[in-house]
Computed example of a mutant assay.
Amino acid sequence: MPALDSMGGEEEPDLVPFRLNRLMAAWNTRLEALLAERGAGFAQWRVLMVAARAGRALTIVELAAHTLVPHSTLSRQIAAMERDGLLRRGRHAADGRAVSVELTARGRARYREWLPLALEEAEAGLAALDPAERALLLRLIDRLEGAVAPPQTSASIA
């Protein structure tokens, strides 16, 4: 994307985070449309994906950190997903004050149903890269995550 000329004839610097954000917004919008065709919401997908990949119960704070959804918004989403039988809330085993969230069998089945859509959309975008470029992209993402991501107190989920 060409830089907008707003510095009086000087070329604007290339703001990589902004470009990556635009790219992911476009990619997520495409996945959101595929999910909507099946009556699914993108927010539900994100919560189910993180919960399924965690392989254990997560606190709402952990879910918020991994889904990038604000705690208050996530709490409402979790309540709705619990009513739909996709998630189960309970007291956290290690900290009784915290709420833990885990997938139900129905939630895991829904995740497995929607996973091919996410993989299909990922492949549609990555098709522009050859295998060596894909491998390089993954290595670069790992390096960038290590450079800018806050330290995790638990194992990576993404």
Rank of each mutant, 00 (worst) to 15 (best):
M81R: 03
R89N: 05
A93Q: 14
T73G: 10
N21D: 14
E37T: 06
R56S: 12
A64V: 09
P2I: 08
M1E: 04
A52R: 13
E120I: 06
L74A: 01
R19H: 15
R46I: 09
R143F: 04
V47K: 00
A132W: 14
A25K: 15
P150C: 09
I141S: 00
W114C: 12
R134L: 06
E121P: 04
V47S: 08
A40I: 05
E102P: 06
G85L: 02
A25Q: 09
E120G: 04
E120R: 04
A52Y: 15
P70R: 15
T29L: 09
A25C: 06
A158M: 08
A149H: 05
E145I: 05
R91M: 14
A25L: 11
R110E: 11
R53Q: 01
Q44S: 09
Q44M: 06
G107T: 02
A57F: 07
I141C: 01
L31W: 06
D95H: 14
R91N: 14
A122L: 15
G107Y: 03
T104M: 00
E145M: 04
E102K: 12
R106N: 07
Q152M: 10
D14H: 13
I157F: 10
G41N: 02
T29M: 04
E11Q: 12
G90C: 15
V69D: 03
R38Y: 03
R30G: 08
P150I: 05
V99Y: 02
V16F: 09
R38I: 01
R110P: 05
G146F: 14
Q44G: 02
P2M: 08
G90K: 12
A127H: 06
L117A: 07
D142Y: 01
T67A: 02
R110Q: 08
P2Q: 13
E11H: 07
E62W: 12
Q77H: 09
A127T: 08
E32N: 09
V50C: 05
I157D: 04
W27R: 13
E11K: 14
L119F: 08
P70E: 11
G107M: 09
A80I: 11
Q152G: 14
A80R: 05
A155T: 10
A52I: 01
T67E: 10
S154Y: 07
G146T: 11
A122C: 12
R30F: 06
I60L: 09
A127Y: 08
G85Y: 00
L63N: 02
Q44D: 01
L115V: 07
A158E: 04
Y111D: 11
G107E: 00
I141V: 10
G107H: 09
I78G: 00
L58T: 00
P13H: 11
A149Y: 05
E145D: 00
V69H: 00
A43L: 07
L15Y: 13
R110H: 09
G107A: 03
A40L: 12
S75R: 11
E123R: 06
L136M: 07
E120D: 12
H66G: 00
W114K: 03
R110Y: 04
L86W: 00
E12K: 07
R19T: 10
A79V: 02
Q152F: 04
L35D: 03
E133Q: 09
A3V: 14
S154H: 15
G8S: 11
L126Q: 05
A36C: 11
P131Y: 14
A94G: 13
T153W: 07
S75E: 15
L58C: 03
L35R: 04
L15W: 13
L119T: 04
L68D: 11
E145L: 02
P17E: 12
A54P: 00
A147Q: 13
E120H: 04
S72M: 13
